[in-house]
């Protein structure tokens, strides 16, 4: 088996990245209720599990997971998020890639943990709130939003909450991975796709 990515792998990356971005996008619509913003990464982790586990079992090569994972954050970056999102994504997806390699790309146990780290990239959208707090508040006040509703949100954005969010997302990743494994067994292995 050759270890470099061929055209089929690259096409797989592209198509799966769209599906993954689509899931993340649908979940992000919940963000219209400001409180739900903190749950978005968790839900994305749970619902994206099946897709990413299938991707991991289809493409067993180095760098595949990394390129696949970097596409959604880069689209988000181009659409108005700050540079924090891709940077966090590089960190978490890098860890995921390392674990994915350690399990020789096929070990289910390693893939499960790899996915739980992979799904943490979504927290970048919240990390940018804490790092660029001042800028964020200023932009919101200039936009004409009342201070009460900004404070409601800003008071929640502290370091402990933020570590809590990463932990919750990580657990969400584990749940997503287990759901994904079940779904793989139930549907895709029978259909001969894996």
């Amino acid at each position: 088996m050759s270890k470099s990515l061929n055209v089929k792998d690259l096409v797989t990356i592209g198509v799966f990245a769209i599906l993954y971005f689509f899931i993340a996008f649908i979940v992000a619509i919940l963000g219209v209720f400001p409180i739900f913003i903190f749950v978005i990464p968790f839900l994305t982790a749970v619902f994206g599990g099946t897709l990413v586990m299938l991707f991991m079992s289809k493409v067993n090569k180095p760098w595949a997971l990394f390129i696949f994972g970097m596409i959604p954050p880069c689209i988000m970056w181009a659409m108005g998020h700050t540079y924090i999102v891709p940077i966090t994504a590089i960190l978490f997806i890098g860890i995921a890639e390392l674990i994915f390699r350690k399990g020789k790309f096929t070990s289910l146990k390693y893939n499960t943990f790899s996915y739980s780290f992979f799904s943490c990239w979504g927290t970048g959208a919240i990390i940018q709130m804490i790092i660029l707090k001042e800028q964020y508040i200023k932009a919101q006040i200039q936009a004409g939003i009342s201070e009460e509703s900004i404070n409601q949100l800003v008071n929640l954005i502290t370091l402990p909450t933020f570590i809590l969010i990463i932990v919750i997302t990580w657990i969400g990743g584990l749940i997503g991975a287990f759901v994904g494994r079940k779904m793989l067994k139930k549907h895709f292995e029978k259909a001969g796709i894996v």
Binding site: L5, V7, L10, V11, G14, V15, A17, I18
Partner: peptide, 13 residues
């Protein structure tokens, strides 16, 4: 190429 092909597939898909 590893970046061009996934990107163009996104638009095609």
């Amino acid at each position: 190429k590893t970046i061009i092909i996934p990107l163009s597939v996104i638009f095609r898909y």
